[in-house]
Design a binder for these strands. Structure first.
Lengths: 107, 107
DNA sequence: CATAGATACCTCATCTGTCAAGGTATATTA
DNA sequence: TAATATACCTTGACAGATGAGGTATCTATG
């Protein structure tokens, strides 16, 4: 496992939720958007992405529905729930605290 | 595993190296110092600490020696090596990059 | 003098998120 | 016709974190 992966570990869910705050989206698109947002430096692995979706759905933070595309591959859309919004605020707070802490420790 | 633990995951080695930059130290002391530095909010679990020591030693980033205490429990001291110093700079750079990236993604 | 708590070390099995490797199907472009 | 992009998914293995357990010494309390 690369250092970056290990550092990012645990942020996957927050990253996905953050993205769904803007708008409903589907796996492939979310991954591309994250790649774009990070100037092509970070791309979630598919397996990581889907396992995170499962956890988020299990926790009630997202719900899913199939898109109504008549052409092309089917898309499974994800939408954030109210609980998901709350969870996101928690994740974000945790991140900010952890960031302060690590900055403090890596002086 | 708590959210915090997952967020901190992967930083253990950098945190230890950072501490050893200041001075040689031993497990128990390092843990107490980290607790103090974070205002009693974060304490490494012992098992986490020792497994990190093993990895760091394996990688040649630290070396160890026994203290010469004549009273009290024996202490195994850890010292950072030149390679460890280099590795720390890398870890720190990785952290700064990852921090930017996550900040960007959790807007 | 007994006992509780602090200091100080360590190991092992288990858990969990990540990921490599594999798969399916459709549309577009060369 | 073949390659590439889009789009979904599962499985097994890996590695860091951790709960639970262990050993030994010293100090303070009653």
């Amino acid at each position: 496992m690369s250092i970056t992966s290990d550092i990012l570990r645990g942020h996957t869910e927050a990253i996905i939720l953050s993205h769904l705050l803007e708008q409903d989206s589907y796996g492939y698109q979310i991954n591309k958007d994250i790649l774009k947002k990070t100037n092509n430096t970070y791309e979630l692995k598919e397996a990581t992405l889907y396992s995170a979706f499962r956890r988020l759905e299990q926790a009630g933070y997202i719900r899913t529905y199939w898109g109504d595309e008549t052409v092309g591959a089917r898309r499974r859309y994800y939408a954030i729930t109210d609980e998901g919004r709350k969870a996101y605020q928690e994740y974000k707070k945790e991140w900010q605290e952890a960031r302060e802490m690590i900055d403090q420790l890596l002086k």
